[in-house]
Amino acid sequence: LAVSGGLFLYSYYSGETVSGGLFLYSYYSGKYQRCYLITIVMIFLIVFPVMFFTSGGYHGGMPAFFVFAIIFTVLMLEKRRALIVSLLEIVLYIGLCLVAYHFPHIVTPFATEADRLADILLAFVSVSTVCGIVLYFHLKEYNQQQLLLEEQNRRLRSLDNAKSTFLTTVAHEIKNPLSSISLHARDTSELLEEEPLDFSLMQENLRTIEQSVMRIDRIVLDLMDTVSIEQGRLALSLVPSDLGALLHSVEKDFSSHPSSGNNQLVLTIQSDLPEISADPERLIQVITNLISNADRHTQNGTITISLTGEPGWQTICVSDTGTGMSEEMRKNALKGYVSADKDYWRHGIGLYVCHQIITAHGGKIWLKSQEGEGTQVFFSLPEEES
């Protein structure tokens, strides 16, 4: 009896130790199915049969452990595997009871009724505790998955709404310059049929058409760059670049076309700044984008571009005296076009592209804006090689 009792206790505590260790491992590693299967094979199909014959057979508390084993298997294993293993357990446990019934001498009996009662109570407490732990972690995992699923569905709905708004707004943004092109082209065609020819009015129509084409080109370029950024394909061709010369080039291009908002461009450049390693075409794209945004949201005002230097950095600021942005729009302006606000795209997608280009140079970009008081967009680039 002493040997049998020792074997029972050794099997019981070994099983409890292995089970607890596997539960902790599965909780922290996430490999639940593997741990569940190991638990079932080692404890339910090996340890439990040994415990059955060394602790009074079906006269003790082992039937409670059998019930627990089947419940655990059904809850923890998936689909067909759960059905097969649980049926195997049922057959095994029925067979153990039949063997104990026909060959009672191989079952270690309880020395006293008190030992039997203690075994039943121990089985009850152990099964209740382990079942509670298993159900707790199982339900916790289920609830976490439900929360993740709800959050994913919410994001998908938000993205779907943003996509619809984005496509509608892009269509609207392209339709406006297309309408302008159509209107001024038709007007020019009619002017060609009049006598005498009004060349000044035709030239004005052609400039307006050119501005509309450039606007469409910037929209398409921003869209292409957005796709490249999201796919990780934004490439730079770094060469020694003079930012002051780049700003003069942009100013000359701006001055050659009438401002759509009748704005004045002012350029302030700190002298004697060294060249930096940069992609000049991309920087011109950034500056042009910022000026275009400022020009579209400013009427009869001033757009100021400044270049200053400090140890290791050169900073460009494009400021305007226009309508400015709300606090919410300012916080999200560099994050792309995912927004339900139709007006946001008109500020945001160009700034998002600018943000990615400056970041790719190893620089940083930020903005200050207040509704009714204009906007300032700053970006700094390192003087050392990116």
Rank of each mutant, 00 (worst) to 15 (best):
L87S: 08
H184L: 09
M224P: 00
F378A: 00
E328S: 09
S29T: 15
D222G: 07
I38N: 10
F378E: 00
I276V: 13
F166C: 07
V220A: 06
V85L: 02
A171H: 13
I209D: 02
F254S: 03
I284F: 06
I209G: 06
P196L: 08
L147N: 13
P311S: 13
I365R: 01
F52S: 06
Q152C: 10
M329H: 10
S260Q: 03
G61F: 01
A162T: 07
Q231S: 11
L83T: 13
P280N: 06
M202C: 07
V353E: 00
E173C: 08
T302E: 12
N153P: 01
L201Q: 07
I209H: 02
T302K: 10
V377L: 01
I90V: 14
G61T: 02
L122D: 02
N143C: 15
R282K: 15
H138F: 14
R116P: 06
L178Y: 08
P63V: 07
V50W: 04
M76T: 12
A185T: 15
T112D: 09
K331R: 14
T321A: 01
N153L: 14
T169M: 11
V127D: 09
I276D: 01
G61R: 01
F378P: 01
F378Q: 00
P196R: 07
T39S: 11
